[in-house]
């Protein structure tokens, strides 16, 4: 079926590379992932509802999705600000700071997890300044927020940064000539252009935070109903050999991530709507 489309192209190798690609995608991604849905389908409706809707599971959804949303919001604000500072202002060591932004992508999550837990422990470098105010970060939901903010940090910066770099200065000059103040120029001319990448970065940071495991479990405390995230619950069920229960929860999370992926695609389509000829 693909040959007919590739026929007009004189370059070789389509059949081979395409065939290999489809085979590999099927073996590594499609077949394994479909196992989740087949396993879930083996549950009765009541069993499924019980597995994904018990009080403990619902509490973990609230915690995971709620804090992930909050972390993504934090990252939107500070990520936009960081991208702005990195693109617009001159500062020494900018290239190093810029490279370091990707640290959460490059640093293994377990390392991030034990480091954040140690830093924010009551006697840790950062925790000791918070303890006198009665603020506990490690082993509380606040710790989860810290870890989720850390791992989501690069997304907003990296989606906003290139758009900001390509923004023509003429647009701002035009606004200035037309009598707009700097604030008006930002809110009416610059921000609307940055909004689609900002939302995309937000969605990506949110998706990452929802699924995150390694950096969170060390700092979370993992108390059922209080600080137990959904991915951990899946593992707990697995360890109790409740494969069906674990898989049912996983299917809910998979559906959530596909939904986010879908939203991101819509956002990207939306952000291109003005630039299309």
């Amino acid at each position: 079926m693909f040959n007919s489309a590739g026929k007009r192209n004189v370059l070789p190798g389509f059949g081979l590379t395409m065939g290999y690609t489809l085979l590999y995608v099927s073996l590594i991604v499609i077949i394994p992932l479909s196992a989740v849905f087949f396993k879930t389908a083996s549950l009765s409706w009541e069993g499924f509802v019980e597995a994904v809707g018990s009080a403990r599971v619902l509490a973990s959804y609230r915690l995971t999705f709620g804090i992930a949303l909050f972390a993504a919001l934090l990252n939107s604000v500070f990520g936009l600000l960081s991208a702005w500072v990195l693109v617009r202002y001159r500062l020494p060591g900018k290239r190093i700071v810029d490279a370091l932004v990707d640290l959460p992508f490059a640093l293994p999550t377990a390392v991030a997890g034990i480091t954040l837990a140690t830093l924010y422990a009551p006697s840790g470098w950062l925790g000791r300044f918070l303890t006198p105010f009665g603020i506990k970060v490690a082993y509380t939901p606040l710790g989860i927020l810290v870890a989720m903010t850390f791992i989501g940090l690069p997304f907003v910066v990296r989606t906003v940064q290139p758009v900001l770099e390509e923004l023509e200065t003429e647009l701002e000059e035009a606004a200035s000539c037309l009598g707009a103040s700097r604030l008006q120029t930002f809110t009416r001319v610059i921000f609307p252009v940055l909004l689609p990448p900002l939302l995309t970065g937000f969605a990506l940071a949110f998706a990452r935070a929802v699924g995150e495991y390694g950096s969170i479990i060390f700092i979370a405390g993992n108390m059922p109903m209080v600080s137990e995230i959904t991915p951990l619950l899946i593992i707990t069920k697995l360890e109790q050999f409740d494969y069906a229960g674990a898989t049912a929860i996983a299917s809910v999370m998979l559906a959530a991530s596909f939904l986010i992926l879908f939203v991101v695609n819509i956002l990207q389509w939306w952000s291109r709507r003005y630039s299309e000829k």
């Binding site: 991604v29 394994p32 989740v36 898989t247």
Partner: peptide, 20 residues
């Protein structure tokens, strides 16, 4: 499809192989 493993929780990435 190629992008999917990025948007799947690592825990689920492990789970699928246990299921298989």
């Amino acid at each position: 499809l190629i992008d999917i493993p990025f948007s799947v929780s690592p825990v689920i990435s492990g789970l699928i192989f246990v299921l298989l």
